[in-house]
Design a protein around this nucleic acid. Structure first.
Lengths: 331, 331
DNA sequence: CTGTTAGCGCGTTCAC
DNA sequence: GTGAACGCGCTAACAG
């Protein structure tokens, strides 16, 4: 493991000159540059970035906190982040929080201890106040999840409009009894419920709170949601699920009950997860511009680090209704 | 951002004493410890780990390289790694390589530049020689993927036995024409094909190379695989897919052709992906002990870092056949 | 039990 | 265009 000292000695120059070559400084003659570079190649020298990072007090590393890497939704979001980061000589690190506040705090220590230059949250486990406290002192961006009162840059879609659009799609198909399977823990769920209620009201349909059931963010949550809804005296003829995974569980359970989708019950999901077109039937859903969300989040983060731009801006990205077979008109 | 100097000054002690308190050294009187701790709390001091890491020349960070975080298979593997790492005061970082050699090399620089203490590969993009070269100089472990000639610790299941078991399951169900959809790029595929051939031969069935088609590791790969197999004069009555995702594509395409699963064609997948029980029909598959694979990989890594244990050992984990509805006997 | 000293490997003035 | 000297923040060896 050669050090910069050894390179300098072997090249017959000072460490400063080696450093200049390493950092592509203009102020070095091409002759010495070649000489130094030759030694670097010969020794297969790799600069120790711990030294550099300490000296510069920056790491050019951005940490992305995911609740669970298995959530394929974030795959393309992260890709967008990476592409922007790499364009600016930054790197992306990913860590799992498992929705565990303790674990989240462990990773936040990376930020506080200067091991990373910024953190992009997807779904903070900590409460709003703690989050704001953190955002005040460190570069922090919230990606794709929004709670009112957040004082940090936020990238999100208009969840209320998206919820409205989803419900409206079902209404236009002629449905009058429309259920909803939501998740309390998801910050955007309230906005989506709001949009759903708005669409119903606007169409002259009454909002039945019993039609809105809260479940876990999972396949099984979808199954249980259907069980709840179909225990009602008048079950819905259409169901808006807050995620495609939940929609899958819902459809599975409907089939188990001998009901067919979309003929007996229409189902719409959310996110345009990769499973949505694959499932049988393929699932109507709201697509989020995942890659662009990731790009934007990283752009905002890099601005945040440089201290430019509005530090509390909410960036709203466009969503899109994608109609597939789980909501085809029944006639 | 207070430094250790300021803490020392304000507490009226030397930086060494502060360092001792920070590192829970016994050799500190409880009086001064309390005094120092009070200042630390008051200043909300967070040690700069860049300094510590440089000094100790270790980071206690392990980098896990994934081709794609969307592959939910690795979610539990990573969980296993994390649990072991945390027990030993190590941390896990995840990076995406997108099967890109260039990107992989960028992340390997983290290792060469001392930013992480070790790297666990899941599926190296580089060739075998480059991998061995790397493994010779740095702590490297290969998790869940194996190529012959690898000179590094490897954690894997017995893919040949698993392939044998999958094929044998179909044979016992009475199938005689058994197709296979494989993926060239997956290192373990050859072993699985070997097991498949072995089972057929043992059952007195002839191995028909046209029944083994190579596809991409994806849903669409499964669809295309079925198209290939059913272009044959005598299509198979059962198909062994090298992954559950491929099995999903296969089933989808079979249904499109008006064939029903498992009545007309039986399908078996691999990995016990979360989609396997969710799909319609639920998918028979080979389960790998993902969590334990992750744990073991990290244990081996930590040994590797300490220079103990066999540095070229292959650890074989147990797999399990899980029978679901995609291969139920047709009668 | 505590302080002094000396680096870890590197980047950066400031001379020359 | 190049080198000497200093310090980033921290830990470890040695005194006392």
């Amino acid at each position: 493991m050669p050090t910069i000292q050894e390179v300098a000695k072997m090249a017959g120059v000072s460490v400063a000159t080696v450093s200049r070559v390493l950092n592509h400084s203009e102020a070095v003659s091409s002759a010495t540059r070649d000489k130094v570079q030759a030694v670097i190649n010969q020794l297969n020298y790799q600069p120790n970035l711990l030294g550099r990072n300490l000296r510069r007090s920056e790491t050019r590393m951005i940490l992305v906190l995911l609740q669970n890497i298995a959530n394929s939704f974030y795959s393309k979001v992260v890709k967008g982040m990476e592409d922007v980061a790499h364009d600016h000589d930054y790197h992306v690190l990913i860590c799992n929080t498992n929705t565990d506040v303790l674990l989240e705090n462990v990773y936040l220590d990376f930020l506080k201890n200067k091991l990373v230059d910024g953190v992009i949250f997807t779904s903070p486990a900590m409460d709003k106040d703690a989050f704001n406290q953190l955002a005040k002192r460190y570069p922090v961006v919230l990606c794709n999840e929004y709670k009112p009162g957040i004082e940090a840059p936020v990238i999100t879609i208009d969840n209320e409009a998206a919820g409205y659009e989803a419900a409206n799609h079902l209404i236009r198909l002629g449905h009058k009894k429309i259920g909803m399977i939501s998740v309390n823990a998801v910050g955007s769920s309230n906005a989506r419920i709001q949009g759903y209620k708005c669409a119903l009201t606007e169409a002259g349909l009454e909002v039945n709170e019993a039609y809105i059931v809260n479940q876990t963010f999972s396949y099984k949550g979808g199954m249980r949601g259907i069980k709840c809804l179909f225990d009602l005296q008048e079950p819905p003829t259409a169901v808006f699920c807050i995620s495609d995974i939940i929609a899958v569980g819902a459809i599975k359970e409907l089939k188990r009950k001998g009901l067919s989708v979309p003929q007996d019950v229409a189902v719409i999901g959310f996110d345009n997860n990769s499973i949505a077109p694959m499932y049988e039937p393929s699932i109507t859903t709201i697509a989020q511009p995942r890659y662009d969300i990731g790009r934007k989040a990283m752009e905002v983060m890099l601005q945040r680090i440089q201290g430019v731009g509005d530090q509390h801006a909410i960036t709203t990205m466009e969503h899109e209704l994608i109609i597939r077979h789980s909501t085809l008109p029944s006639r």
